[in-house]
Design a protein around this nucleic acid. Structure first.
Lengths: 201, 201
DNA sequence: CTTATTTCTTAATCTAGGTTAAGTGCTCCA
DNA sequence: TGGAGCACTTAACCTAGATTAAGAAATAAG
């Protein structure tokens, strides 16, 4: 049995993720996996394009992705990063099945588990417990998002950066600086200036 | 049967709300209602205090509420409004059962349906379909929140205000101006100036 | 190894929106 | 019915962060 899990490589990371909130039987776990597909993707790959209807969500086994939108065809705004153990997708488009305005891009070579909307719906019927799992996932995501909104309304750029560092210590090493700038909502130039100022203290 | 619904007044608004996403049997509807409590609350009532653990969520039958947080004990930031047909609560505190940082205040005399966390959890067990209902509710809320975050990162105050007007035409009449200012993320003074400028065009 | 492209830095200048302050209406309840 | 407090306005001045531009440093590509 031990070797069984081994043959799946780090595929079981997603099962671990699920088991944090609901417990599936081994059969249900296999059913779940049978509805997903694990894929290796190279850095700079665009998994989702703005203007298109989003058909799938991604769970990250390894590597790093981001989602962002482009304003007036010029300025990029990073909406989220996703590294090992995180989910990422264009929720708006995935749920409404209307064209979205997010891009999803691979920042570092990654392995992702692909779950199509179609299969997700099927899984809700076959394993109702997953309804609970994704509810909890969405709830946590909502709470994090609300906090970020509050921070953008009430904190300075410097404070937002400090919070980002505390909250995602592993990301700071990996993510290019200008993308952190975009995530916390300032220009790369100002971010650079701010960083220099912070070092002096 | 007609008179039956009448005796509940607009209590059935919440059942309508649920039926948009999942269909309950009449028995399930009664069970649901038995786990809630309808309450009339006067303007200026504080239903939830920052620093306290949130024990319940509210569905608005009539009237108007808002949630907000206070920064450095000075500046208020309106996080959300809720009028007829909307849900409101401090999601972070309700989910984590840790002290929250939101206030929930009644802006206009209101009738709300109270659903405690305890009863909500019981309902998940007794009517698993509600798992789906609240998943969908949370999903929609997340999408709206993500859009608002994106708007705050990429639009000007004027554009945000225009979007607010289009999105919540009924609210503009009801909500005091300074609270709209806070919601879109500017000071009341600047909002006033901006509005005057917009009228000139 | 060399060049090209992208990322990061620095600095001068500019602006959306904040702050402070003073004045004009409300409205509400004593 | 009058005055105490809110809600809103206007205006002068201020600042965090944007924009523009140009050079340095790091990666990538050939």
């Amino acid at each position: 049995m031990y070797s069984f899990y081994c043959t799946f490589g780090n595929m079981n990371l997603i099962l671990q993720n699920i088991s944090k909130h609901v417990s599936l039987t081994p059969e249900e776990e296999l059913l779940f996996l049978s509805k997903t597909e694990t894929k290796k993707v190279k850095a700079k790959t665009i998994l989702q394009n703005a203007g298109h209807v989003c058909k799938e969500g991604y769970f990250v086994n390894s590597g790093l992705l981001r989602s962002f939108n482009i304003n007036d065809n010029i300025v990029e705004h990073v909406m989220s990063f996703a590294c090992e153990g995180w989910w990422i997708s264009d929720m708006y488009s995935l749920l409404s099945q209307k064209p979205g305005n997010l891009f999803i891009e691979v920042l570092e070579d990654a392995e992702v588990v692909v779950l199509t909307k179609e299969n997700q719906e099927k899984l809700y019927l076959e394993i109702p417990k997953l309804e609970r799992f994704f509810r909890i996932l969405t709830e946590n995501s909502l709470v994090a998002n609300q906090e970020r909104l509050m921070d953008n309304l009430s904190l300075t750029a410097e404070e937002r950066f400090e919070k980002f560092c505390k909250k995602y210590p592993t990301l700071i090493q990996k993510v290019p600086q200008k993308q952190i700038a975009s995530y916390i909502g300032v220009t790369p130039e100002f971010f650079s200036k701010m960083k220099a100022r912070m070092l002096k203290k």
